[in-house]
Nucleic acid binder design. Structure first.
Lengths: 214, 214
DNA sequence: ACGGATCCATACCTGGATCCTG
DNA sequence: CAGGATCCAGGTATGGATCCGT
């Protein structure tokens, strides 16, 4: 079921291009909610299944053997991304001991298969899947992403996550990642003591992913 | 919905006595599985709901305001318990810093409302709920429970949980508490390093609970 | 008889992302 | 426009206990 090679993965992804999300859902026998707000991550999960992404352990890329991460991304009529892209959850307690090279962000972004999906206002079922793009960051891109990550990680590592907001970082940012603003996860404060705080995640700004789709 | 006093809780529990589990399930609009092996904790959950146990945070007793823990217990025709009683899960990593006075076992056992339920072989739906008993351990009982707990906790605290088995402890024992023997939870080894091991829980032996129902 | 194994319900967490005001 | 808020699916952890082979 999982693709045996990068080549096979790409071939499968190309076959999806042109189909609508509704057609894909029907093929996988999945019902689409009527309101798109009720289906936020659904298209991404359908594409995962269609491409044979493995049931993975947390922190693993979608295709562990290939080291490839899958991301769907909504493109507007202009061909530009309409939303930022979620990269991964931020593990606040472990951030102080993390380094860029071994970070989850670096591993997730090392190689990404982007699958564009037509953005609204069309109903989700009518939106078309686009041509996939396999991307590895350039040296210049990596340098910026790393600088953004290191800035954010150092603040979190000091226990000052509450001082950060989504304005930090040129291309990579930290934003809430939770069911609601009342959700609490585990972090650490300035003294290293346990702290219940809003869970956060790393996101790529749309201005950056637009570069990839230029 | 939660009882306002010990008196009110006991009154509610007395009203349940004499009903069958099937009658209680019907009143709460819950279906009983045909095989009793598929319904292991169900009677306990039905009684919780019938008595108004609060949706609690983990580590809290069932009735936090009253400091009372609810336990159902299967009694055979002889009036003796047919099973051991689960007390609470063992938090292997935190055990080294725990003390009996503030332990979850001591808090759970400080005051227990026992609700007997007729044991098999009758089908679950036909088993009758018995007369409740509000129990606080005697000084002598507490001393033994504490000694058992301290013996077990010291071994866990050393990181030697793998050396323990259910034979340790006169009245309180440690046994597996998991979906299967392959399940793994978080513990620590002799050096304090993280260890994935079988989750365990504290249980009261039936020879002990038999004392309470003498 | 009892030590080890297992079963259900429900809450919580994580990964999939997009929604929605000011 | 974009920062902050939110929504679903699926897996894991926990609390409710009893099952069952030796």
């Amino acid at each position: 079921m999982p693709p045996a090679s990068e080549r096979e993965l790409l071939a499968r992804a190309r076959e999806l291009a042109g189909y609508t999300v509704g057609e894909l859902a029907a093929r996988l026998a999945v019902a689409l909610p009527a309101q798109s707000a009720r289906a936020k991550g659904l298209a991404g999960q359908l594409v995962e299944r269609a491409l044979g992404a493995s049931a993975r352990q947390p922190h693993e890329p979608d295709f562990p053997e290939l080291g490839i991460e899958l991301k769907t991304i909504p493109l507007g009529a202009s061909g530009r991304p309409r939303e930022s892209t979620f990269v991964c959850g931020a593990r606040l307690r472990a951030m102080a001991e993390s380094e860029w090279e071994s970070s989850e962000v670096a591993r997730k972004l090392g190689c990404v298969l982007w699958v564009p999906i037509e953005a609204g206002p069309a109903p989700l079922g009518a939106r078309r899947i686009g041509a996939p793009r396999l991307w590895r960051p350039s040296t210049a891109q990596l340098a910026v992403l790393r600088a953004d990550w290191e800035q954010i990680a150092s603040v979190i590592g000091r226990g000052d996550v509450e001082l950060l907001d989504a304005r930090t970082g040129r291309w990579l940012q930290l934003r809430p990642k939770a069911a609601s603003s009342r959700t609490r996860g585990r972090g650490i404060d300035e003294r290293g003591a346990p702290l219940r705080t809003l869970p956060r995640g790393f996101y790529l700004r749309a201005v950056f992913t637009a570069e990839i789709f230029k």
